[in-house]
Each structure stands twice: as C-alpha cells, then as structure tokens.
C-alpha cells in the first residue's frame, strides 16, 4: 500500500470517527429535547462550527502522525510530488464528492419546500450530506489508487 493510499485510509477513518461522535452528540441533544424551539438553530450552528474545526484539527494531527510513522518505518520521507495521475484521481474523487453532496442538498431543499421538517433538521441533513460527500470522495480516491486509475 502506497503512502497516498495510507493517507486516504487515515483520513477516511478519522472522518468517520469525528462524524460518529458528532452524530452521537446531536442524537443526545435530540433525546434530551434540546432541539426544539428557537435555540435549536443556534445549538445546531454551534455544534456544526465545532465539528468543522475538530475535523480540520483531527485531519492535520492524523496526517502528521502518519507521516512520522511512515518515515520511521520505511526510512524514507513520503513524496510531496503530485503528478498528473494523482491530480486526475483528486479531480475524479472531488466529482464523486460533489455529486453525493448535491443529492443531499437537493433532498434538503425539497424537504424545506414542502415544510415537513424544522429548518434546523434540514441544516443537519445538509451537514450529513457534506460528510457523506467527503466519505464518498475518500472511497472513490481509494478505489482509483488501488486500481491504478
């Protein structure tokens, strides 16, 4: 497994863990009945902000740790070279990611239009779609790396 593949697996695992914690936190708020009334949108907004900051921080830490472990084990620094194949893989995975997010976003707008959910629940659906898009992008990247292209 190349360094790039390990990096994608690490990013995928950290994104899943962070989102699992977020989902548990939001579900806990829902169970406690805090996601009702005018404060619900504020709570969802705050938790989403924390989620984004945490995701960035965890991704940076995981990549640094992976790089250190990789260098220690293989005795070679990982390549910072990004060639044409890797750029194409990145573009294709971004396409998969955007398409997945678009479906979630369209569903959220549909739900908002027919007014069956509260606006903060729609916002949670958009956040979930963003994560699903991210996960789909990582999976697409991993498949393309494993296949060669």
């Amino acid at each position: 497994m190349s360094y790039q593949e390990k990096s994608v697996v690490a990013s995928l695992a950290s994104a899943l863990i962070v989102f699992a914690f977020y989902a548990l936190y939001v579900f806990g708020m829902h169970q406690e009945g805090r996601l009702v009334g005018p404060e619900a949108s504020s709570l969802v907004g705050k938790s989403s902000f924390v989620l984004m900051v945490t995701t960035i921080a965890v991704t940076v830490v995981v990549q640094v740790v992976l790089s250190v472990i990789h260098t220690a084990v293989t005795r070679e620094t990982e390549t910072i070279l990004t060639d044409e194949r890797e750029q194409l893989i990145a573009l294709k995975s971004m396409q998969v990611s955007s398409t997945t997010f678009s479906f979630g976003f369209l569903a959220a707008m549909g739900i908002l239009a027919i007014e069956i959910w509260e606006p903060h629940m729609v916002f949670l659906l958009i956040i979930t779609s963003m994560f699903m898009g991210m996960i789909a992008g990582y999976i697409a990247k991993l498949i393309l790396y494993r296949r060669g292209y």
Partner: peptide, 12 residues
C-alpha cells in the same frame, strides 16, 4: 518526475 505508482499504472 512522477511517482513510482504512476509508472506501475502505465506499465500495466
């Protein structure tokens, strides 16, 4: 100026 994986992918 590419990665080894790219050469492998081209070769195969």
């Amino acid at each position: 100026g590419v990665t080894r994986q790219t050469i492998v992918a081209i070769e195969n």
